[in-house]
């Protein structure tokens, strides 16, 4: 097979088919089954102490897929999708903003020593402050219920993206920029053709982390401020003693969080064909 002819899609198909032939998918299914079985037996069959108040698997799933849910939330109620969409919208705003600001900032931090000496110390002080510590300030600084949540979500993402992008620039082998200068490239051309693509693998690692911490901070934000959203759903369900809704919210978060992560990875593969092909070659 000539590697040059393999397109992104073909490669994805090839990966999926070889994945299906490996033991991986079957181990994965077994893992899930084990978890669900543990849940079922501990809560519903053995009724272990401290587990008796937990919602059981049958209760949760029958509620989730019920046309007439007891607690008013299932895949048939519009409210369920409203929670999802609102959370997704906040993630989209925060993640995009963090990417649009974080990637260029990270590139310049890595590229220019002056900019780094100027901004990086500030960065190092702000970065370890947990998102939750920002909650009061976010509520004071921003009006309404929406912007504080988006701000909190943005914050963690922004640090992850910027930092990884900066590391990406620093990771680039010096010979690449030297080669570019040798070949007559200007400083700006070198930035565009060497620094940006060279940092790309780290940038996408950063974006993977960024989307993960975005969900983390989103739920934290939604629990203290804002209306609707999966974090809000979980929190209010807890207050109202509607325990199955908590589990529905949690599983939904898991599935959607994973999907957004996979989307970011897919975008990375699409933008870094060279890397996908190199790695694919390494696997064979």
């Amino acid at each position: 097979m000539s590697q040059a002819d393999v397109t992104g899609l073909g490669l994805t198909m090839f990966r999926i088919s070889s994945w299906l032939k490996s033991p991986k998918p079957y181990l994965m299914v077994t893992g899930f089954m084990l978890l669900l079985a543990t849940w079922y037996f501990t809560v519903e069959v053995w009724k272990l102490p401290r587990f008796q108040d937990m919602p059981g698997i049958t209760e949760v799933f029958s509620e989730w897929f019920s046309k007439d849910p007891y607690y008013g939330l299932s895949i048939y109620t519009p409210e369920y999708y409203k929670h999802i969409l609102i959370s997704l919208r906040r993630i989209a705003y925060a993640f995009c903003l963090a990417t649009v600001l974080g990637v260029p900032l990270g590139l310049f931090l890595g590229w220019s020593k002056t900019i780094r000496d100027f901004i990086f110390p500030l960065f190092e002080v702000f970065r370890p402050i947990p998102v939750l510590a920002w909650v009061p300030l976010a509520i004071i600084m921003f009006s309404g219920s929406e912007t504080p949540v988006i701000f909190l979500t943005f914050l963690a993402s922004f640090f992850a993206t910027t930092l990884n992008t900066m590391l990406g620039v620093e990771s680039i082998d010096e010979s690449y920029s030297r080669a570019a200068y040798c070949l007559g490239a200007s400083r700006w051309q070198t930035f565009k053709h060497v620094v940006v693509p060279g940092a790309m693998p780290y940038i996408f690692t950063g974006l993977q982390i960024s989307i993960g911490v975005a969900w983390f901070s989103l739920v934290a934000g939604e629990m203290v401020s804002g209306q609707y959203g999966l974090g809000y759903l979980i929190n209010t369900a807890y207050m109202m003693i509607e325990y199955p809704k908590i589990i529905i919210g949690m599983i939904t978060l898991g599935v959607i969080g994973y999907s957004t992560s996979a989307l970011v990875r897919l975008a990375g593969d699409y933008m870094m064909q060279w890397r996908v092909r190199e790695l694919a070659l390494g696997d064979n």
Partner: peptide
């Protein structure tokens, strides 16, 4: 000033892996 009248071929190779 580095320039294209003197071009280095590097020890570990410096082709840009992100370009064909």
């Amino acid at each position: 000033e580095p320039g294209s009248d003197r071009i280095v071929v590097f020890q570990n190779g410096a082709l840009f892996p992100w370009k064909t």
